[in-house]
Design a protein around this nucleic acid. Structure first.
Lengths: 373, 373
DNA sequence: CTGAAAGCGCTTACAG
DNA sequence: CTGAAAGCGCTTACAG
């Protein structure tokens, strides 16, 4: 009994000895250097009484550290407020902790939502987002992107439409061994590198809504036909019409460019058809608002004289009157998933995370109604 | 003659010797390692036959390098395509080449324009932009910003309204010695750290326009009163009215929040006044469009029943019908100037560049007209 | 499970 | 005007 007690005490003392000492040292360090100096791995190692190699192991979650050592070092790290210098780490690892966002979509709302999603996905991972807007038409496009990546030794990149659809850039990325995630309306390759927005499903929602209201003579304004999303939204739309035995009259189809101006102009053309369509589906909100303006100028009323639908569910769709029925596209969620997937992609080389997908959905508002008899 | 000739020849040979050799070596290097290896400062030094210290001097534009040596090394750098690793440089310099954009303005168009301007100002300087959206209401706001800066050892930061108006953050930046540029509607401190958008002038333009059209009973919807831009735009507006002997009737003034929704609500209130104002100046486009929607819903016509003015000249102002008369605010130009100034600020400590300012200007559209008799 | 040494690609006193 | 050495803050074989 006596022995056991003393043995217990001895044990407890010994653990305290090892436990208290570094903690006390850490606290003293904090007192002395306060917020004037940022601790380095060397400080932590000295305070904890281990080599920096071991501290490094703790930082990098190496399994070969005794649990006690790990906890000990962890405490010191917390107390002195150590966080490894990404620059020094990057230099040793031969890559940075920067993620590049490569984009050419000119819509501010899209860009901001996407950025916000990516930042959310990067969360407290220690990675930062750097921007690379680009122009696919430029002669130096590929070269610029490559330089951007190599100079900064990027951790990886996220590509958004339409630059994500460009096979030249993807080929280049593979060549230089840069990790990437492509966000696109449909799976363009192996799912490991893709986040898909399923625009075909969104198009279908739009088609079902208008057909369901009883429209038969429907106009369609696409985005740039070279953009995959334009084709997907249209294909989904036509599929939905087909379900009702309807087809899209080629005379009522116009190629837009996802811009307000193109919506205004193509909308104006469709208005002048005789008989004019009873509804128009514009492949994004920006164009739908253009169509609405064309109607307003022509003195026609929405939805009485014509229904209008958009796609995206951006602020603009509720800023106009009547508010635009649209399809919600979860842009920021796509960004978040892309960021998470990119992080996983590097972590467990090749074994990328779950194949979560995003599905767009219908948002009904005042701009659509049954056609007049 | 003979002697002179041979002397010339000798000279020419000797310069060629020194000139050709490194160039040839550089070309050979390029052949061999092609695009497979990125050259380092060591490669350049070896090829040029100098120490890396000297190459470093060339990179950093040190004046103590013989002109010939500099040219020589410059050639080698061009041929092998050397560009110094910002990570390694940063580690040695104890700072990175990253510029932080700290912002809390929720308007996507504002954010994107600003980013684009900053990127343009950063140009090919080798600096990159990292984003830090923030929430001034958060308890950890200051701490988060500080961590962001210290962890990344930022080169400097650019603050946009309204976070740029927060003295707490500026104080913290000074404390940790972080270079910064504040973008704001008015000079909040020494010009060295400011880029001003002169919103008072913009407000004046709005006031002159409406007063000039003959409006006397004018409504005003402000942004959040705590935002400096709200107060500046209003002050300028009132100054312009005063020039015509008019004053703003307090009963027709409403506090908005720069959001569409607030414009819609405050607009609705103003419509119900009896007699109602003949014109409303909303302190940004987003709210102006809200007012327009309120009018539309009430069945009133713009500008026949009432004129509406906004501020910003964003896309939204021409996406609605009638298009909104507004004041152009050169947001991206502000960003560009801020970036340039930040770069200069660090370069010649304290001696920041010219005090270029940006002036907003009036954009007349269909939403304003003389009041009905 | 832990450590001493070398290295990532740069810069900076210090000499000369 | 130029160079050899040490250092920025990390990681990585290699030993033990």
């Amino acid at each position: 009994m006596q022995a056991r007690l003393s043995s217990r005490e001895g044990q407890s003392v010994s653990t305290e000895d090892e436990a208290i000492e570094p903690v006390a040292a850490a606290e003293e360090w904090r007192e002395r250097h306060g917020s004037s100096r940022k601790p380095t791995i060397n400080d932590v190692a000295r305070i904890a009484g281990v080599s920096k190699r071991t501290v490094s192991r703790v930082i990098n979650n190496s399994p070969l550290v005794k649990e006690k050592t790990r906890t000990e070092i962890g405490k010191v790290i917390d107390i002195v407020g150590f966080s490894p210098d990404p620059q020094a780490r990057g230099l040793a690892f031969r890559h940075s902790y920067l993620i590049g966002m490569i984009y050419d979509n000119p819509n501010p709302q899209y860009v901001v939502n996407m950025q916000q999603g990516i930042l959310a996905g990067l969360n407290k991972s220690g990675h930062e987002l750097v921007l690379h807007p680009c122009d696919r038409e430029s002669d130096t496009f590929l070269q610029d992107v490559r330089q951007f990546i190599e100079r900064l030794k990027l951790f990886g990149v996220i590509l958004t439409p339409s630059v994500s659809e460009d096979e030249r850039i993807v080929e280049m990325l593979r060549e230089i061994g840069c990790a990437y995630i492509r966000i696109a309306s449909v799976a363009l390759e192996d799912n490991d590198n893709m986040i898909v927005s399923n625009d075909r499903i969104g198009g279908r929602e739009a088609g079902r809504h208008l057909a369901g209201l009883g429209h038969e003579r429907i106009g369609f304004i696409s985005g740039k036909p070279s953009f995959r999303s334009s084709r997907e939204r249209r294909a989904g739309f036509e599929e939905a019409l087909a379900e009702r035995g309807l087809t899209l009259d080629p005379a009522l189809v116009r190629d837009g460019a996802y811009t307000f101006q193109s919506g205004l102009e193509r909308g104006r053309e469709l208005l002048q058809m005789d008989p004019r369509p009873t509804a128009i589906f514009a492949a994004n909100d920006e164009m739908a608002v253009g169509v609405l303006q064309a109607l307003s100028i022509a003195g026609l009323r929405v939805p009485d004289d014509m229904s209008i639908m958009g796609y995206d569910d951006f602020q603009i769709s509720i800023s106009v009157w009547p508010r635009i029925t649209t399809v919600h596209s979860p842009v920021s969620r796509l960004g978040e998933l892309a960021a998470e997937k990119l992080l996983l992609l590097k972590e467990q080389e090749g074994l990328a995370g779950g194949d979560e997908t995003c599905t767009p959905w219908l948002i009904e508002r005042e701009s659509t109604a049954a056609p007049r008899k």
